[in-house]
Each structure stands twice: as structure tokens, then as C-alpha cells.
Design a protein around this nucleic acid. Structure first.
Lengths: 331, 331
DNA sequence: CTGTTAGCGCTTTCAC
DNA sequence: GTGAAAGCGCTAACAG
């Protein structure tokens, strides 16, 4: 097996102690420039790469943030991942990603292994099926921020989007486009954002004396199509479909097309997220959008602040990121 | 600052030595069941979480694989990421992801920090702008596998897709659909897969006595649109557009639509990848597809095999993953 | 069956 | 200015 170059090797080569080498590489000002230069030079020549495991062991910090998301294939999560990783790197931190596939026990395992890996902090985009993972985090006193969804009953730092406002905004927009019967295909309402989006939808409808039509589907791939196909007879009576998120919207678009609908002529379609801001897509959904770069960066800022403060963080922070209307070609 | 529970704490609590605790938690069979049970129980009660930094320091293995990709927002990479992470976890390994944004110096930094983090191996989806990163890897004798693109001049383990065959396959398919003038919007041909896809395209055209029309674009977001818009006058003479990858295809679709084209009536569109296998998309491109789950898993298998063999791996492996025709609704 | 000891590579007192 | 020594938490060789 290949042996890495260590401080000891450099020390031997330079005829000085390990301490001196360590200091030289850290550019300590107790050393004369000449010594530092010489050591840096030989370290370079020997192909020295610092062993950060040893540094972590010694200092207690890994400069790594665990980031737990559901599924990278969902562009929502992959965009969050991208912006998080990029921003963390600019702050000289690593992102350690893990995915849960929306399986609660997986989430618990992920958090446990993050703790085991001694990450300095954790960003969790929770499944919100149970509180096991969050309980563990609270118990271990590890700095963490919940992103996207939050537990009403738990005291945690969190960053969410203005879901009620978004629901209100997009529903009002559909009404202004002459939709009267708006079908809302929502996610399960144990998810805080689903509950809040529905509340906004209800508020807008109420203001116009309109009736709500809500179904709660799973976000799993295929479930939207599975719902729509047997529903086709009733579908025609609606003017618009609002779905919980863009990936459900893509699936709805795809399914409606195969059912012979023209969008938006025969049926308007709207959603939440605005993934067209992050990736180029064949079509663009009209939606209540959020800025994922901003989400990622503000969540990271909040977390790093928690990490820097040694104290057990007295007051909790809750950031709410606004939602705004993004017109696509489906309304 | 919160102090984690260590083996020492458990040992004190149980009135035994650290070694015994370590052995009990590893379920060593030199210990009587009663002792093991008692220790495991108290460890649990105390909320013990193993410090894997210390274990890594001691054993030299981090059970972590560095995975370097371009940009998570591209579903190609995020799918690879998903399947890689999932498969590695099933093998009890971690995936440490980093992204390069297609910037060569970023790639070098990423590899360097992977080495510094003492990852056990590296999966690199190389930019192929230069060989700096790969040179470093070779020099440090760290097990690694190149995925998707490969350097002809360097001896490395690699896994690529059958790009020449894919190019041939999809071009032949377009010809069978009566396309005679096929515009190929390829990526830069310093990328091995671009070069090979073109070769397949040429072979198919040659067999039918047809003329090639190739332009080399950047894969960056927006570049396909930027090319197509000023090209609109000439565009009408073509029967089909073949693009290097699906995300360029989405952009082409989106642009053609806004230019008033109906697809496939006015223009056929085909590409490479088959991302509709991984994520649900509003439309499905006809393409020469690859199985990313298979790619990820075979790359991981190859890498883990390298890691398990202490020897400097005598014979290099090159895996070629096949491409197959996937009909969408764009031809 | 269990404990003592050494050491992974690094940083950080504390001496000289 | 520089070095010796201790120790982060864990494992493994070696005793007993």
C-alpha cells in the first residue's frame, strides 16, 4: 500500500522537528521567512497533502456539513444540493450529502452517520413522517437547520418558503385567468408546506366565493399519472389543475398530453417551485416560485452562525423565503 | 461545547477497560454474551455514537468514496449521484460529492481535497479539459475510476458508454424515419464521448450516402438556444436535429417551440441519454439511451475491487456500457 | 476472557 | 526561534 507523505517525513528531510514543519505550513509568524520557504518548498516537492482526518481528530472540527435530502433525481433537491455545495465550498466547508428516498428509517440512519462522521453541522430537508431524526439531533446538541418543512411542535431553527402566500398567489392568478373550478392535487398534508399551500388556495377561493377541490397524492414518481388516468371522466369539468410541485406538474403535463389535452387551451396547469429557473426544461410551468439559491445560502448562513456560537443558541431562528409568480406556457 | 460519549466513558460506567468496550461493540466472540449485552445496553443508554474520525485515523480507511461530477442541476449527473450514493450505502460506504461547474482548476482542487480527506477511492466524471487532476491521482496511487469520458493517452481504469454505437443507432433510426439532412449539434470534440458519437453518426450517414452537418457547441446552459436563434433561416432545410445530450435537447425543444416549430411534424429531434428513465419529464426525447443505474453500480463495483486489492492493480479495466434506442415523442 | 500499551498524524501547550 | 511531549478516540498486538 502507498504511504502518504506526513509531517514527519518532511521534518526528516528538512532536519527539523514536526512542530516546526506544522508551523511553517500554517505560516506562523514566529518562524523566519527563510525556514518557512524552505519547508514549504520541500513539502511541495514531496507531494505533501495534509491529512485532514488527523487534523479533525486533533481540532474536533471536520469543516464538513451533512446535507440530507430526499432524492437527487428531483431537480428541486439537486438544485438545492448544487447551491449548497457551491456556497459551502466558498466558505471553505465540505458538503457531505446523503439521500433518504423518503424513507423515515433511512433518515434516522443518515443523521446517525453524520453524527458519527463528526460533521460540524447538519442541513436536513426532513421527510416529516416522524420526529426520530430531529429528536436525535436535539439530544446530541448538534447545530442543525431544517429546510423546506418544519415541525410545529418542535423548537428548531428552520428555513421555509412562504407557502400560504404562494398558494394564495397562484390560485388568484388562475382565477384572474377565468378559472372557476380549480383542481388541487396536493401532497400529503402531514407535510407542513402542503398544509400551508392548501391554506393559501382556500383563502383565495373563499375571497371569490369559489369551491375547493383537493386530493392528497403521494409525491412518488407515477402517482400523479395513476390518479389522473382513472379520473379522466371527471377531469373535463375543471378549468385548471394546480399541483403541489413541479415534478408532479411535469407528470401531469405528460399525462394530460397523452390523454389528448392541449395545454393551456383545454386545461390550465400550474404548480409550485419554478425549476425552470435552475434547469432548462422543454416546457415551463406557470407557478408560485422560490429562489433555491437564496434558500441554500440563507440556510447555510444560519447554520454557520450556529456553529460559530459556542453557546447552546438561545433564540431560535425561522427564515421565511418569499414566493413569487412565474408565468410559463401552461396557463 | 457538548462533549460526545466515548468508549472511555462507557468503560468507566461499566467498570471495565476501553478495549473490552470496543470488543463488545464489535461483537467479538472472545467475550461472554452477558458482558457484551451489558456493555451494549449502557452504550445505548448513554447515547453512544462511534467517532468514525478516530476509527479512520486508526484503521486508515474512511469508508468514503469521493465522487466528482460537473453540476447536480444536470439530471444526468444527479441521477448518477443518486444511484452511486444508494449503491455505495448498500455496501456500507459513504459518498462524498463535489462539483466542478466544468472548471478545470476546480476539478484539481476537488481531487486534492478528496485526497486530503483520505477517501478510500474516487469516481471522477472528468471534464477532460486537461489531465492535471488525473495526473495527481496517478501520482498519489489512489484507486480511482473515470466515468463517462476517458483519456486515450492515459492508462486509467474507466467506464464509458458505447458512444460510437449509440451515434450509429440513433442516426440510422432518423434515416429510417426518412430524415436525409440531419443536423448534429455536438459538444466540443475534446470530450471523448462527443468524438465517438460523431464517429457513429458519420458511419451511419456514409452507409446511406448522406452528407454530415456538424456544429460543436458548448454544453453550457443557453448555448443551444444561442446557436439556434440566429441559425433559424437555414434551419428549415433540415429534417432532423440530433443533439449531444438530453439537456441540450430540452433546450432545443424549448427554442424550436418558441420559433413556431411543431415537433416532430416540422422537425424531428433526437439526442443521447434517455433521462426520462430516471425522472419524469413533460416530454420525452427519442434518443440513444444508457442505463445510469447500471453505470453507477458497475463503476462502484470496479472501484471497490481496486480498493480491496492491495496490489497496484496490474491490468486496467475498461467497461463499456451499451446504448439502446428509446423512442420518445419527438420523432 | 480481559487489560495494558502503543500509535495513527496532527496541533498545541510548555520549556529551553 | 525551535523542540519535546501530550493527547484527540479508537483499534490491535501482546500479555497475562
Amino acid at each position: 500500500m502507498f504511504k502518504n507523505v506526513t509531517l514527519k517525513d518532511i521534518a526528516k528531510e528538512c532536519g527539523c522537528s514536526v512542530t516546526t514543519v506544522s508551523r511553517a505550513l500554517k505560516d506562523s509568524d514566529t518562524l523566519p521567512q527563510a525556514t518557512k520557504d524552505k519547508i514549504n518548498q520541500t513539502a511541495n516537492a514531496m507531494g505533501y497533502i495534509p491529512n485532514s482526518v488527523a487534523t479533525s481528530m486533533r481540532t474536533g472540527s471536520t469543516r464538513t456539513i451533512g446535507v440530507c435530502v430526499q432524492d437527487f433525481r428531483n431537480p428541486f433537491y439537486s438544485s438545492i444540493a448544487k447551491y449548497t455545495e457551491q456556497y459551502l465550498r466558498s466558505k471553505n466547508y465540505f458538503a457531505l450529502f446523503a439521500t433518504t428516498n423518503e424513507e423515515p428509517e433511512q433518515e434516522y440512519n443518515v443523521i446517525k452517520s453524520f453524527l458519527s462522521k463528526n460533521v460540524d453541522g447538519i442541513l436536513l430537508l426532513p421527510i416529516q413522517h416522524d420526529t426520530q431524526a430531529v429528536d436525535l439531533l436535539l439530544e446530541q446538541k448538534k447545530p442543525f437547520v431544517l429546510v423546506g418543512r418544519q415541525f410545529e411542535q418542535l423548537n428548531t431553527n428552520s428555513l421555509v418558503t412562504a407557502d400560504e402566500e404562494g398558494g394564495y398567489l397562484i390560485t388568484n392568478y388562475l382565477i384572474s385567468k377565468n378559472a372557476r373550478k380549480i383542481l388541487f392535487l396536493n401532497a400529503e398534508e402531514s407535510i407542513s408546506s402542503a398544509k400551508n399551500r392548501r391554506a393559501g388556495y382556500m383563502r383565495a377561493l373563499e375571497e371569490h366565493g369559489l369551491e375547493p377541490f383537493v386530493f392528497n397524492l403521494s409525491m412518488e414518481y407515477g402517482k400523479t399519472r395513476e390518479f389522473l388516468i382513472p379520473f379522466s371522466a371527471e377531469l373535463a369539468q375543471y378549468d385548471a389543475i394546480l399541483v403541489f410541485c413541479d415534478i408532479m406538474g411535469f407528470e401531469a403535463y405528460n399525462t394530460l398530453l397523452s390523454m389528448g389535452y392541449s395545454i393551456p387551451q383545454d386545461m390550465m396547469l400550474a404548480s409550485f417551485d419554478g425549476l425552470q429557473q435552475d434547469i432548462i426544461l422543454p416546457i415551463e410551468l406557470t407557478c408560485a416560485a422560490t429562489d433555491r439559491k437564496k434558500m441554500a445560502e440563507q440556510a447555510v448562513d444560519m447554520l454557520l452562525e450556529l456553529i460559530d456560537h459556542e453557546q447552546p443558541s438561545p433564540n431560535l431562528q425561522h427564515i421565511v423565503i418569499d414566493q413569487y409568480l412565474l408565468e410559463g406556457n401552461t396557463t
